[in-house]
Design a protein around this nucleic acid. Structure first.
Lengths: 235, 235
DNA sequence: AACGACCTGACAGCAAGCTGAACGCGGCGC
DNA sequence: GCGCCGCGTTCAGCTTGCTGTCAGGTCGTT
């Protein structure tokens, strides 16, 4: 899952970022609202962590704007105790949860896990194509009834393809998805992960487009494309 | 839509920014070319507004570099009247439109609106002509329902034609598009690629204009021209 | 018919991609 | 604290198939 953290405090922000990353998610960290707007404009997140007091505006306005734009991404508000009245307003404005600072990182993990399960569950809890059964929630994959465990990184790479079935992803794009910054290194890390995913899930799970990148194998592509009506926002 | 404004004049820049924002678009404003490069490196824009005289270089070089990098984002040039010769060069370099300063903000709105409509109309640029279905995003082509795989180079050559449907491209032009430098070699590479594309997509996909070059076949030409009203300026 | 422009099958060279192995690091059990 | 283990990453060597070139053929023009 990809998480957008909007928080201007460098220490708290870094701690939260590390915690989320440790849970196996990908984090983008924006310290200002305008940066956050850039992020949501270009990336689809599974969760937004939102501080309410930011240098260039109120987090609540950001939340309201997102909801007005029919964005139903789950939002968890990070609020100081003295802004607790804002909390009510936040929930009214469409937040899904809140945490009072200072909060326990374990609790943060729990909340995020809940969202992740819901997130994974909402669009497509269980995908079955061919002999593959993919449970987005538990990150478990069964292949012909046999459970296959992907490691954290492997899953993130695989997830990049599941997010946009049919898309052709260049190695640079996958790298960015993995590390959420321009890792302009010369390395074949992506190739290695593709190789490992293939060995675990079947060689035709991802196909190589030489000189361009990779994309889901044919069966998977069509299976996913069919049940992705792109604007699924249940009431 | 997201717009990148490259303009060093603070007053004009602010006015343009506000106008675009009032039209409901998102604006990033770069006052120098290096900042603009940062922007296009990290964000995908729907439109670029480009001043030609900038403190750290010529806008034209920026445009050429983008086109050389296969970026087909629409670009509208903002030019002073005494740079009108540059305007021609700009259009040759791949600009989509131009505005002579001082220009009417309403006119700017109209031009941007045209681009936005085109932009919105093709979120997933899928072209279907005859038995061909071309997905520009995933670089996938289906012919009569059967997927056809073009190699990287083949695609780039084919793309050159799709970019400007109806255009007659000389072998020299295609070579330059392929290698982005003057490959003054005596070789029949282009002929070979045309041949390979024809074999994969059908022989009438590209027609030969003896002594001049090549252009898209008739059906394709008309099909593309129809959904590319390149000069839409509604009242 | 002669010429030039273009097409095509074949092929060597090479770069892109694949993979097994090794190393470093952090987590965990002891 | 110590060693084991698993994961992430890098590297070198191998494989694959794309790329660009050429020779010889076909087609159109003069």
């Amino acid at each position: 899952m990809r998480v957008l953290l909007i928080e201007d405090d460098p220490i708290l922000g870094a701690a939260v970022r590390d915690q989320i990353a440790a849970d196996g998610h990908t984090v983008d960290w924006a310290t200002r609202l305008d940066l956050a707007r850039d992020c949501v404009a270009t990336v689809t997140y599974g969760l937004v962590l939102l501080d309410l007091m930011l240098p260039d505006g109120r987090g609540l306005d950001f939340l309201k704007a997102r909801r007005a734009a029919r964005d139903s991404t789950p939002v968890i508000i990070l609020t100081a105790r003295d802004q607790i009245s804002d909390r009510i307003a936040g929930l009214n404005a469409g937040a899904d949860d809140y945490l009072v600072k200072p909060f326990d990182l374990a609790e943060l993990s729990a909340r995020i896990g809940a969202v992740a399960r819901r997130y994974a569950g909402s669009p497509n809890p269980l995908v079955e194509i061919g002999d593959l059964a993919i449970d987005m929630a538990t990150r478990m994959i069964h292949r012909g009834g046999v459970p296959v465990a992907l490691t954290a990184r492997e899953w993130v790479v695989f997830e990049a393809f599941l997010q946009r079935p049919g898309a052709l992803l260049s190695k640079a794009q996958i790298e960015e998805w993995l590390y959420s910054f321009d890792a302009e290194v010369e390395s074949n890390t992506i190739e290695v992960y593709i190789g490992r995913i293939r060995r675990k899930l079947g060689h035709d799970i991802i196909e190589t487009v030489r000189g361009m990148g990779y994309r889901l194998g044919r069966k998977l592509r069509e299976g996913r494309a069919a049940d992705q009506p792109r604007n699924a926002n249940p009431p």
